[in-house]
Each structure stands twice: as structure tokens, then as C-alpha cells.
């Protein structure tokens, strides 16, 4: 039985609190200005209420990762469970992964002069825990799924506001946000 870990991001439940991103900084001890997970508000052309629906994105742990393909130093590996791991120690800071990832997952650490990105907290997964961001999410909007068994007809791979990259086949899945009936005074 194979496993392919992925994030399920339920935009209908997400309240844009950024707890996921800060939990990641807290557990992974990121540099003060570094984030591995960012929360992007949906543009009004996609969701009509500004700053009220969000994409929470870290690494999408693609099937065929652009970062891994671009990395000249072999600093990226893909685990059998689908997690794309970046090894900071061998990174030469060429930023080619940063240029290549369509989702902006790897980011440059200006002080240590290397790229870094979401590890899907594989150290936690290997200890039977959930990733820090998933543990933090107060509404259950962010969960860990196994794509090999995941079956949710409502989930989409490419919501509006997220570039479609079929060749990379990103693993993150999304549930789209609904809207309330609005009566204005």
C-alpha cells in the first residue's frame, strides 16, 4: 500500500487567521522574516468579498517537482511517501528552485544564503504526529490526506487563483469557499 501525503485546504472553512503559517515558524524555528506557509487572500474577481477567502499555501509536494528538477546541487529529494525534502546543508543558494517553482514554495534565507521550504514536517509525521500547520488550524480547514486513498468529489486540484501545472501535478487539494446571503442596510 503506497502513500502520497498531501494537504487538503478547505477554503470554505478557512478564516485566514495565519495560525498555520505562524505555527510553522514556531515549530520549524524559521528566521524572523521567513515564512514557509503563506496565506493569500482571493482577489475580488474570484471571491467577491475582498480579504475574506484565502489560499493557504506551503509546498505542494508535486509529483514531478520543478524545484527538484531545477536544483543543480541535488539538494532536493522526494521520499516514497511523496514528501519533497530540501536539504539546506547541500544547497548552494543558486535560487534556481525559487525561480522555477510556480507556487513560490522555496524561499531564500538572506542570512544563511540558502533556499528553504516546507518539509511537510516529515520529522513529525515520522513520529506519528501531524504537521505543525495542520495541528494549529482551529477550524479544520487544513488537513493531511493520503492522495492514494483520498476520495472527495468536491475537492479540486486547481482552484482559481492557483496556477494549473499539470506537468508538475501538485498534490494539494482544495475545497472551494461558499458565500452567505448578504442583506445590506
Amino acid at each position: 500500500m503506497s502513500t502520497r501525503y498531501a494537504f487538503l485546504m478547505d477554503m470554505d472553512k478557512c478564516i485566514g487567521c495565519r495560525g498555520c503559517g505562524m505555527a510553522c515558524k514556531n515549530f520549524n524555528q524559521l528566521a524572523p522574516d521567513m515564512v514557509w506557509r503563506q496565506v493569500y487572500p482571493l482577489d475580488e474577481r474570484i471571491y467577491p468579498h475582498r480579504d475574506r477567502a484565502f489560499l493557504s499555501l506551503a509546498c505542494n509536494h508535486c509529483d514531478d517537482p520543478a524545484c527538484l528538477a531545477a536544483c543543480p546541487a541535488g539538494s532536493y529529494t522526494k521520499r516514497p511517501d511523496g514528501i519533497v525534502v530540501h536539504h539546506q546543508e547541500t544547497c548552494i543558494g543558486c535560487t534556481n528552485c525559487i525561480r522555477s517553482c510556480p507556487y513560490g514554495a522555496p524561499r531564500f534565507n538572506k542570512v544563511e544564503k540558502h533556499a528553504e521550504k516546507c518539509s511537510l514536517c516529515h520529522e513529525r509525521l515520522d513520529a506519528g504526529l501531524t504537521p505543525a500547520c495542520v495541528q494549529a488550524c482551529p477550524t479544520g480547514a487544513l488537513t493531511l490526506i493520503d492522495l492514494d486513498t483520498f476520495d472527495n468529489a468536491n475537492a479540486v486540484q486547481y482552484p482559481a487563483g492557483y496556477p494549473a501545472m499539470p506537468r508538475l501535478n501538485p498534490s494539494t487539494r482544495f475545497i472551494l469557499p461558499r458565500m452567505p446571503r448578504v442583506l445590506r442596510g
Partner: peptide, 25 residues
Amino acid sequence: FHLGAPLRAVTALNGLGHSWLSREG
């Protein structure tokens, strides 16, 4: 000058199998 670790530039050849940047080197 583009590299964060220029002294390890030679390791940029590690990715010949997949990386156009390696092949460029």
C-alpha cells in the same frame, strides 16, 4: 556572485540528470 555558497559551486554538477542549470555548468 549569484550563488549563496560560491565555494561549493562545483556541486552544481550534481544535478546533471535533471537540472538544466547543472548541464549549463
